[in-house]
Design a protein around this nucleic acid. Sequence first.
DNA 1: GATGAATGAGGATTCATTCAT
DNA 2: TATGAATGAATCCTCATTCAT
Lengths: 202, 202, 202, 202
Amino acid sequence: MSEPRYQRRKQDRPQEITAAAFDAFAENGYAATRVEEVARRAGVSKGLMYLYFKTKEELFKAVVKSVVVRRVDALIDTVEGTEMSSEAFIRGPVLDFMKRIPDSPVAVVIRLLISEGQRYPDLVDYYYENVVSRGLAAITRLVERGVERGEFKPSAVTDLPHLFVAPVVLSVIWRILFSKNSFDTDRFMETQINLILTQIKT
Amino acid sequence: MSEPRYQRRKQDRPQEITAAAFDAFAENGYAATRVEEVARRAGVSKGLMYLYFKTKEELFKAVVKSVVVRRVDALIDTVEGTEMSSEAFIRGPVLDFMKRIPDSPVAVVIRLLISEGQRYPDLVDYYYENVVSRGLAAITRLVERGVERGEFKPSAVTDLPHLFVAPVVLSVIWRILFSKNSFDTDRFMETQINLILTQIKT
Amino acid sequence: MSEPRYQRRKQDRPQEITAAAFDAFAENGYAATRVEEVARRAGVSKGLMYLYFKTKEELFKAVVKSVVVRRVDALIDTVEGTEMSSEAFIRGPVLDFMKRIPDSPVAVVIRLLISEGQRYPDLVDYYYENVVSRGLAAITRLVERGVERGEFKPSAVTDLPHLFVAPVVLSVIWRILFSKNSFDTDRFMETQINLILTQIKT
Amino acid sequence: MSEPRYQRRKQDRPQEITAAAFDAFAENGYAATRVEEVARRAGVSKGLMYLYFKTKEELFKAVVKSVVVRRVDALIDTVEGTEMSSEAFIRGPVLDFMKRIPDSPVAVVIRLLISEGQRYPDLVDYYYENVVSRGLAAITRLVERGVERGEFKPSAVTDLPHLFVAPVVLSVIWRILFSKNSFDTDRFMETQINLILTQIKT
DNA sequence: GATGAATGAGGATTCATTCAT
DNA sequence: TATGAATGAATCCTCATTCAT
């Protein structure tokens, strides 16, 4: 009947724990989440958590690092590999990717970084280097490729990939804070992309 | 350390305390700031603080509410009162206002809301209604006025004032997280405004 | 009827707490004594202890330092100030002092130092310099004075003040460990003093 | 780190574990030594340790009991068996034995007993009966034999074998606490033996 | 027998809040 | 009022001990 209350599952534990911690942090934030609560959600004892993560801080860092990275890499790879026109690529995969972010774990991580980042500068650095910097570089590359191919004309947009990202950031923050006053973030992003492309298309 | 400079008058106390709390929260976040630290900064005893604010939460709410509101109202009033063309108004006062936000207390409040907002929904509501909603309405009105006057053509921008705000939000978040990898947020906002105006101008 | 459960007695607290801690450490040793237990004995809350002593370790150090020092100084002063013959001084005040040690707080401190000293080398150094080294120097001085006065002949005892101290140390350890198999430590010390004096008297 | 060198034989396990525990306790004391650390040093799993010693306390008792006993017996036997004069025996084997104690495991056990003895009175009793009491009896017997043989005259020393032991105890404590301010404990013990023998020789 | 993953009671420490002065 | 000493619930973390494998 009852589950064995004692199971050896060394392989899966770290992920189970970070997953549980992710949920807990997402709901209550880092400071307000008790280690015991994470353990409970992971179906594990408090002590076991400390076998895998030396401190609550380390658990936090593991949680943050466990999210995102793969997704960015995937997108970056596609940029180079695709046969699509730059515009089609932006209106297609890039926009899709952007639209998914506000509902993805990324939004949670952004919230956590904003809340706790000041105390974990190395974590912020990690994120800047692995996600932000590479993401922006990918967009820049995409625009440059459009220029090289004669699809786009040179413009300020080339050094301001932030223009593409701005509506995503606003949408994420909006989702975090004002989910009950939602607005159509998809259309918002589409409109911004339109603005940009209209401007730079040859 | 920092002795109170003069004998403070009682009626200034609450503001002095919220100002001290604002600084402390700005530096360390809400959870990591001790009530005692706020008292020390305000040059006041812990006990006295509790005379003005019944709990740390209440102090937090007072801090958040103490920021921003006046500024938004001022801008909103100007929209109606001005003789300037809509474009000139946007490129002038509005853009100036936007540029100042990332270095203003607003950035701090945004950080605090993102960190702690989940636990204080009424505070988020307060902000939404008094700042966000009214700010966006003001932008919408501005664009509409441009349309009425024949300066702008009707477009999606009318119901997406968020387009104006997006670069501000990104800049704020950037300042909070990546201040050491700064980029030219002024030029960023100008470029976005350009994008929008180019599109909607008749 | 009931004692007020909340009393402001800033002046006395540190001593009350170290006194309570001394008793608790004496009974159970450092590691086995809970901070809460010390607080209970001091009639004080756990939290208050941390107002006066930042950690349990610091409390421990304060306890150790609170004992002994005055006594050693007093004896040392007397050595120089007295008119007594060296022999009379040794058989009188010195022997009395020695006899009292095994039942004094010093015995407790010695036990604590032996138990925990390895982890607090600075505390051991403190004791060596303030108690051991000065105590031995005082004895050496006493013997030298006897030689100068022609009461004693020069001998190995001059550089081995430890000979005077050895029975005290054994008595202390005995008291700590074998109090239920007590032996006459007073007579033991007298006999040792006799041995020494018989040997060095002119 | 330290791989077990050979496939150990089962019958050696308990001794290997107590030896490892002895080293660990010697370095860090009982309370500060983790069972896991002992297991690691013994090249054995934690679980296996609990097969041999039901609790950490039991292991501690085994460690304490594993030391010393044989040496005392050996010395006691020699007292009766020897052809040497009492003085020669004391200045020879006995003094040698004494000199070796401060650097021997006995010093560690003394420290452990002083630290933890209060909680393990049966262990202290065990030590008193098997080591202290018998050791002192052996010295008493030795002196008595000297008296019987006309080498020594009757004196207080007969019932104060502690006089022989005192410098050993001081040396042990000194070694434990002040090893960095070492002094010549060998000469110290010799001088004490000299004092005693000079006094009691016929 | 062995292992070491898993458990959870126990203990140090923090800090918002109270209240005697 | 004003103070800051005093309180104690809350929470992180450790480590002896157990037990599935």
